[in-house]
């Protein structure tokens, strides 16, 4: 169901799902982001939604929503032009009557990820003064504790939690390495090279099983080197003890879609990659305007959503609160699919 027509003419940039306390009830809400406004929509039932809160930004536009898993009535946003220059926490006053925003960090921020236990990790600065910060978020949205993680000697582009291991964090770097930190001690545990075919890969999800680390990666740009066409996502396995790795599965487009999968992205701005992974499903927006969904266990493309009403899809997210797929168009229309 379309939940918003955007009369301002500014582009819709992101969507996310969040739990929010509204009049004493914890509701599963939708957060939408346009360039200068972030809105919270509460469910009214029967697929009707009502805009409940809006946070306005006047100087710097919104680049992406940074959801904080486990957090209720709190969401973060990254603001900036080409690069992230600010991360802000968005919340409400204690009486629920007005919106609040708190500046969490500013600077030349490369990547940010919300983690379990109300934490946020970000990488900022350039190569020689790169800083990796882990923040615990207080009830009022501010930073309660700040801890530095040991930076690798190369730029960190993306982060991913290791499922089931709250103290482990992965990062992908510009030099095709996966790094792993111990969040409790801040130690950089290992740097693992994953081969040159993974240039500027985005690290989406990871889990550890039988002493091995399984990592789902995606490629910010298509590469026509594979005989089956360019893989959009890839599952690799790494032995963290030896740093040896190998590919397990490639997730390619079905026949007939090949050659049209170059993402809305560039090597310099890989966070604009429009792909998302949750549990064993991955979704991505293709430049054709179609959304493709893969079953990561079965290894095949499970669904294709063609553009609707002549409007291409421009972003896609899994709802972290259930198994819904949130698909957005530039004009502000958000569609929710039950998968």
């Amino acid at each position: 169901q379309p939940i918003e027509q955007n009369p301002s003419g500014s582009c819709s940039v992101d969507v996310s799902a969040v739990w929010w306390d509204i009049a004493g009830f914890k509701e599963q809400c939708i957060i939408t982001a346009c360039e200068y406004v972030v809105s919270l929509w509460k469910p009214l039932g029967a697929w009707q939604w009502e805009k409940t809160y809006s946070w306005h930004f006047t100087e710097v536009p919104v680049l992406q929503i940074v959801p904080v898993p486990d957090a209720c009535s709190l969401v973060c946003v990254a603001l900036g032009n080409l690069e992230i220059s600010e991360i802000r926490a968005l919340l409400c006053s204690s009486d629920g009557k007005s919106e609040k925003q708190v500046l969490l960090s500013s600077g030349n921020i490369k990547a940010a990820l919300g983690l379990s236990k109300r934490r946020l990790v970000s990488s900022s600065g350039t190569l020689c003064d790169q800083q990796i910060d882990l923040m615990a978020l207080a009830e009022d949205g501010g930073s309660k504790e700040k801890q530095s993680l040991m930076p690798p000697e190369e730029t960190v582009l993306t982060f991913a939690e290791v499922q089931g291991m709250q103290e482990a964090l992965l990062g992908s770097t510009i030099m095709n390495n996966i790094v792993i930190w111990n969040l409790k001690t801040g130690q950089l545990l290992k740097k693992m090279h994953i081969g040159d075919s993974f240039h500027a890969a985005v690290c989406h999800r990871a889990y550890s099983e039988m002493g091995l680390l399984f990592v789902v990666l995606s490629h910010p740009c298509a590469q026509e080197t594979e005989p089956l066409g360019s893989p959009v996502f890839q599952l690799i396995v790494i032995n963290p003890k030896t740093a040896l790795s190998m590919g397990v599965l490639l997730y390619c487009l079905p026949q007939g879609q090949a050659g049209r999968q170059v993402f809305v992205s560039s090597l310099l701005n890989i966070r604009f990659l429009e792909g998302d992974v949750k549990d064993h499903f991955a979704a991505a927006v293709l430049t054709s305007g179609t959304i493709a969904v893969w079953d990561l266990l079965l290894g095949h493309c499970a669904a294709l959503l063609p553009p609707i009403s002549d409007q291409n899809w421009s972003f896609v997210k899994w709802s972290g609160t259930d198994s819904h797929l949130l698909a957005g168009q530039k004009d502000g229309n958000i569609f929710i699919y039950r998968y």
């Binding site: 040991m150 291991m165 103290e167 482990a168 792993i180 111990n182 001690t185 130690q187 950089l188 545990l189 290992k190 550890s208 039988m210 002493g211 091995l212 680390l213 396995v237 790494i238 032995n239 963290p240 003890k241 030896t242 040896l244 790795s245 190998m246």
Partner: peptide
């Protein structure tokens, strides 16, 4: 065979790497 290609595996890799890495 695949596991052998990746070298010796440890179920406690996280704890072991944490004790080996510089503080």
């Amino acid at each position: 065979r695949r596991k052998r290609n990746l070298g010796p595996i440890s179920l406690n890799w996280f704890e072991e790497l944490s004790s080996e890495a510089p503080p």
